[in-house]
Amino acid sequence: MSAPLDDLDTLVGRIPDGAKVALPPDYSGCAMAAVRTLIKRGVRDLHLVGVPSVGFQGDMLIGAGCVATLETAAVTIGEYGLAPRFTAAIKAGAIRMIDGTCPAIHAGLQAAEKGIPYMPVRGIVGSDLLEQRDDWIVGADPFGGEDGPLVLVKAITPDITLIHAPLADRHGNAWIGVRREMMVMAHAAKTTLVTFEKLYDGDLLANAEMAAGTIPALYIGALAEAENGAWPVGLFGAYPADDAHLRMYIEMAGTDDGFQTYLDDYVLDRKAAE
């Protein structure tokens, strides 16, 4: 059984209000075309998990009122400055924030992919983050090791992982190369939705070089072709970020009105590059 090949609207229709959605950072594979479609549909109450941080797509979803909870180690739009809608939402108390740290988010997903309840992590003890988390507890090495406390991080199981891949095939496999945080995300989530840049003519798993960097269809719920689908964020190995556009976004999204104009121009009106 291979995953169905959807159009973007159908793919995004698989994300219900209130879903816990894992998203990769801007340097990985961001399904921006899908995020715009999701905003256009008016999705609500998402619980975003930024693995381990989230950038432009998180800021857009927050600004558009699609997010109830944000769980991540950071929100950053790379070189371009603070994420304006995220910053405004925190100030207004408009979203529930679950601050984490990168390795704990990876560890929570790794626990989920192994089907175990938690994963021990070094460090963290003495950070104020610990006091905010009821899903992290301090424990000891059960084997009696004496090199100090460990933080036990509860498994993180997203309902959906949403990513953009450079390639996918007709069998529903998606190639992500060395960006293997997306592999862990796919393993950990109940299902994974993939947009992809180009259709690979053949079977990615039949080619050993490609198979090593391929998420098998077994983890994937559906796929949709989206050329230039990460824009204006870059896609590893394919194209760089649209510097001028991201600058313009930061500028516009600095105010409520400016952000609304941005949405009107590039999301709701779909003047985007697709």
Binding site: P52, S53, A74, G93, T101, R122
Partner: peptide
Amino acid sequence: NLVGIGDYPQTKVRFPGSFGSAYLYFL
């Protein structure tokens, strides 16, 4: 402090977040 200025969580100034600091600083 990579989180914010003022009372958490509704800080009056918000920074990007802690990234991997709570781990790498130890190791």
